[in-house]
């Protein structure tokens, strides 16, 4: 096969890239969707959710943290990868306490949208039912750790963009938890503001605004109208910050 310069092939489709781009960057610029939850364009990638794992030149790698390399052959849309992505999404569901029917995030939730996208009809694995502390100490924002998927988007947003370093993840293995960087450990003692990227970027219902219930009715929310595979093609932190600052 002739190898074009600065080109990778995702499921056979030639996609250009520029030096320094990851497979994810290149795919998104070319409007090719690779499922992801812990990645958000404009933030340093982390590679923790593992939904974006693709097979690149025979190796299983996270698309969001792996540099695109000339001539690279990437498999993204395969039966094996879809099945694995569904299983990983199910793992995220059973690990936390995801209460879709009564969650205000329902319809705007990426975990839920990912479930729909991957054709997930059941949670499959036994529930962990973890006890994770709720933090309602902040006047405008509450933190429900039960719904956290440990993606670290708020951690990176707060540290890199808001420059406040409000969040961190602590604990090992299944005990990993989102913690707040204050001397009380409470969110209310932090300087987190509703306009901060960290307060808006949560893909699930873990970081939510108080007193904002069902402003947009169920059925008219983001993922009620569009698939996550379309929405994700046009995301960037710059727009997110502009949109949500109130």
């Amino acid at each position: 096969m002739t190898q074009l310069k600065d080109t990778i092939f995702i499921d056979g489709k030639a996609i250009g890239f520029t030096e320094g781009q990851t497979i994810m960057d290149a795919a998104l610029s070319a409007q090719v969707y690779i499922p992801h939850l812990c990645h958000y364009p404009g933030l340093t990638p982390s590679g923790n959710c593992r939904l974006c794992v693709v097979e690149a030149d025979g190796r299983m790698v996270a698309a969001c943290t792996t540099a695109a390399r000339e001539g690279q052959q990437v498999s993204n849309n395969t039966a094996e990868l879809s099945a694995a992505r569904k299983a990983i999404t199910q793992m995220l569901f059973v690990e936390g306490n995801h209460i879709c029917p009564s969650c205000e995030k329902s319809g705007n939730c990426k975990l839920q949208a990912m479930g729909y996208y991957l054709g997930m009809l059941e949670e499959h694995y036994p529930q962990f039912n973890p006890h994770r502390a709720l933090d309602a100490s902040h006047p405008d924002i509450f933190l429900d750790r039960g719904r956290c998927i440990l993606c670290g988007l708020c951690v990176r947003s707060s540290h890199d963009v808001d420059k406040k370093n409000v969040f961190a993840i602590a604990g090992r293995g299944a005990d990993a938890r989102l913690i707040v960087n204050t001397v009380s450990g409470k969110l209310g003692d932090s300087n987190l503001d509703v306009g901060d990227l960290a307060a808006n970027i949560c893909p699930v219902g873990a970081i939510m605004f108080k007193e904002h219930g069902y402003v947009t009715p169920i059925g008219e929310r983001i993922y009620d109208r569009q698939k996550i595979s379309d929405v994700a093609l046009n995301e960037h932190v710059l727009e997110q910050k502009g949109d949500k600052a109130r």
């Binding site: 793992m91 995220l92 998927i149 604990g171 293995g173 299944a174």
Partner: peptide
């Protein structure tokens, strides 16, 4: 493995616990 998983990534954090069960 479930005890020693660092908890960073989903398949290991959740998967090692599921394997244990």
């Amino acid at each position: 493995f479930a005890h020693e998983s660092c908890g960073f990534c989903t398949p290991c954090r959740v998967g090692t616990r599921l394997l244990e069960n």
